[in-house]
Simulated assay, not measured.
Amino acid sequence: MKAKGSITKQEAELEISKEEVDSFFKGIIPQFVRDAGGILSDNVRFWRWKNQVKIIKQAEVIVKESGLQKKEVPLKVLVPLIENSSLEEEETMQLKWANLLANAATGKVNVTPNYVAILNELSPLEAQLLDILYDNVIKESDYQKRKTMQFGKDKVCEVLGLSSESFDLIIENLFRLGLCRPPGSTGIMFGDSRVALQTTSVFELTTLGFDFVTACR
Rank of each mutant, 00 (worst) to 15 (best):
D154R: 15
E172F: 12
A117K: 11
D142C: 12
K145C: 10
S163F: 12
D131H: 15
K153E: 09
M149D: 07
N136E: 15
I171V: 09
L125Y: 01
E126I: 14
E165W: 12
N99I: 02
I170W: 11
R176L: 14
T112L: 15
I138N: 06
G161E: 07
F151C: 05
V137M: 08
W97R: 02
Q144M: 14
D135A: 10
V109G: 01
P124T: 06
S166A: 15
V159T: 12
D135V: 08
V159C: 00
T148C: 12
F175L: 10
L122D: 04
T112P: 05
K153N: 10
D142M: 10
E158A: 03
Y115R: 01
V111L: 01
G152C: 11
L160W: 03
V109S: 12
K139P: 03
I118H: 07
A117V: 14
I138D: 06
K147F: 01
V137N: 00
L174I: 11
T106F: 14
R176A: 07
W97I: 01
N114Y: 05
Y143S: 13
F151Q: 00
Y143G: 03
L130D: 02
P113Y: 06
R146L: 13
G161Y: 08
A127P: 03
V156Q: 04
W97Q: 09
E140R: 07
L125Q: 11
R176N: 12
S141N: 14
L125H: 07
T148Y: 08
I132Q: 01
E172V: 14
N120F: 06
L174K: 13
Y134H: 13
D154W: 06
